[in-house]
Nucleic acid binder design. Structure first.
Lengths: 99, 99
DNA sequence: TGACTGGTTCAAGCACCGTTGATGTGTCGG
DNA sequence: CCGACACATCAACGGTGCTTGAACCAGTCA
């Protein structure tokens, strides 16, 4: 019984498409280390602010990250089950073996 | 020490782009179950033959599958380290925990 | 209220990738 | 040698999605 059982084929493809971009991949890597506000992300992922916003929206829609407003700033964090989702998106049960 | 250490960022993106397609995802799922010739794959992944050939080439170039000629037919199989490559392509060490 | 900063959204341009039809390569049977 | 089959490659079209610049919200401070 794996987490993969609750994801449809289309959902897995959408997840993989969300991962398969250099900007979004870098963002996920950063958020895997720590929660960060957008201004902080901008220093580590050098792209125009509006472009970063676009990619963050894609990640939000994919359910991989969450956004929280803190005063003027918005903090982004990995979704609780982001790791599980990512592993579950791989074909052939390749992502199994981790809790 | 994980398999991820030997993959560059670009290589991981290329792997994920190879995975993020319905046809290729289905092919990998099939090959995860068993080695199959192209004619066999065609029955399980209903797309035109030349299109299937195109996607198989993408998977070959990504190092995820291997092709072997057997008479008139060509057998495709998952590469030995396909599972390892797929897990290593995920950001933030999400694929770790499996041998 | 008005200026300023942090983020987001909108509309348009452009490149890339998947699809298609035709052609090419390799193998077996007659 | 010739036709048939299995598969691969080529050239061209079309749609999707990344990128860009501008305009637009939300919150803080004077």
């Amino acid at each position: 019984m794996s987490a993969a059982d609750v994801l449809s084929r289309e959902q897995r493809i959408e997840l993989l498409q969300a991962l398969a971009d250099p900007v979004r991949w870098a963002v996920l890597e950063e958020l895997g280390a720590a929660t960060r506000c957008v201004c902080d992300l901008r220093e580590r992922v050098p792209v125009p602010a509006n472009l970063l916003s676009y990619h963050l929206k894609v990640l939000r829609d994919a359910g991989l990250v969450t956004a929280t407003r803190r005063g003027r700033w918005v903090d982004y964090a990995l979704a609780d089950d982001a790791g599980r989702l990512m592993r579950a998106s791989l074909p052939g049960g390749a992502g199994e073996g981790s809790a």
